[in-house]
Design a binder for these strands. Structure first.
Lengths: 238, 238
DNA sequence: CAGACCATAAATGTATACATGAAGCTGTCA
DNA sequence: TGACAGCTTCATGTATACATTTATGGTCTG
């Protein structure tokens, strides 16, 4: 039994909250959850605290936990925040210099992304995985563990993560074209870091996050049927 | 019945960790703490989890919690991070426009800071309180709750907070002069926001945080006797 | 009929008992 | 003497029992 009941409760509850099984603002009852999972209240309580830390739940003043609710503006700000943090990672990597090994790895990922987006061999699944890896590598490129963890934190709000809207947009016509643009930004960020152009790296990384905001607007205002495909958007009211 | 045993345990443990009573890296034993506080392990456990969220403790892989350790670079990066976030708050306030009531309040605080730093009526205690209020107001000036909370989080690492090094430097000769410079930056930030000069506001706010970095360097490398006066510096190794 | 108060039920907060697993020690054997 | 096995100890993980608080619903009163 590798992981303990606590971790399993965390994973289970996280999935259920993100899937929308618990509506936004709904209170979570320890006893009910404990019975469902067949464990005692103690690890459930710990799991609820963990999910609060992740930003998915909030403490109710009178006691207990409830599913957190977000407005459209909250989501937009969370995306902006990620852009600012990734921009800082890019700038610091440029200013301080990134380790060659790390730069080499992220350039390999760039090549992989090129192949995944090429017309003749378009592979959405590969793109999704490589995109996540690119952003993870970028977060650590400056060597600052403090910053890396903070970016990870900011991207843990599911709708703020770099991969949040990929799945939702998979079928949209203009989507493949937007991937080409995104990939151009990826390359520009790494090139700027390589050339020690900190301001450029920061600016492009910020702008890159704006793609997510545009996708958010599309999903929320143009084609709401896609909402269910973006994890965590069930927590957005309005 | 004020706050429940959990909150009291949090406050007590936070103080003791920051005071250096538990050395960096030291493990915290639930039973021992519970006995000291005269409560059971359950609220102690919750308190430890809370302090992990605040970044003061970390989970030990084999189980339990230990006092987190930071390097000098970690502290410098945490300060840089706060500067980036406060810079973003200033920029967004400028770009989006700040509520007049909020702007008015922060300008009143600016006037108070002027009085507190004036030669004839220098009042360190007042400066400390007003400085904290200035930074709290700045964090909320853009109206983004997401950002405000994130700044609060970043400033919860005690050595990264805007007031961290004030007390430590209280007796240093050049200190009063540096306060004058800091106050000039405060005014420049608010002026830039008022004039909707987002880039300027962001830049000055970032530079403002660099004062903390300079103070950190002074305390760590010039006069280490001051270390004990800055809360949380006991967690820094080296 | 509105409002306040009490009773009751249910959920969380806290304490304690039990289970599990990790770390250290001791004794023995190579 | 060194190393390893097994045991012992102790700390945490988990379960359960108890206490306290909160929400609710119904009734009584003005």
């Amino acid at each position: 039994m590798a992981e303990g009941r606590r971790s399993r409760a965390v994973m289970d509850l996280r999935d259920r909250v993100l899937s929308g099984e618990f509506p936004a603002g709904a209170r979570l009852y320890e006893v009910q959850i404990a019975e469902t999972l067949g464990i005692s209240r103690t690890p459930v309580r710990e799991a609820l605290g963990q999910l609060e830390r992740e930003g998915l739940l909030e403490r109710v003043p009178s006691g207990g936990f409830a599913v957190r609710t977000f407005t459209f503006d909250d989501v937009a700000d969370a995306i902006e925040l990620r852009g600012v943090l990734e921009g800082t990672a890019a700038r610091l990597a440029a200013e301080r210099g990134a380790e060659p090994a790390r730069l080499h790895r992220i350039e390999q990922v760039l090549d992989g992304l090129d192949r995944a987006t090429a017309e003749e061999s378009y592979d959405f699944g590969a793109y999704e995985a490589l995109n996540a890896e690119f952003h993870a590598l970028l977060a650590g490129l400056s060597g600052s563990e403090i910053l890396r963890v903070e970016i990870e934190r900011a991207a843990r709000l599911p709708f703020a993560s770099p991969s949040a809207f990929l799945r939702g947009q998979q079928g949209v016509p203009a989507f493949h074209r937007s991937l080409i643009g995104a990939q151009a930004q990826h390359r520009a960020i790494v090139e700027a870091i390589d050339l020690r152009e900190g301001t450029r790296a920061e600016g492009v990384a910020r702008e890159h996050a704006r793609l997510a905001r545009r996708n958010l607007e599309y999903v929320m205002f143009e084609d709401r049927s896609l909402i269910d495909r973006v994890p965590g958007l069930s927590m957005v009211v309005g």
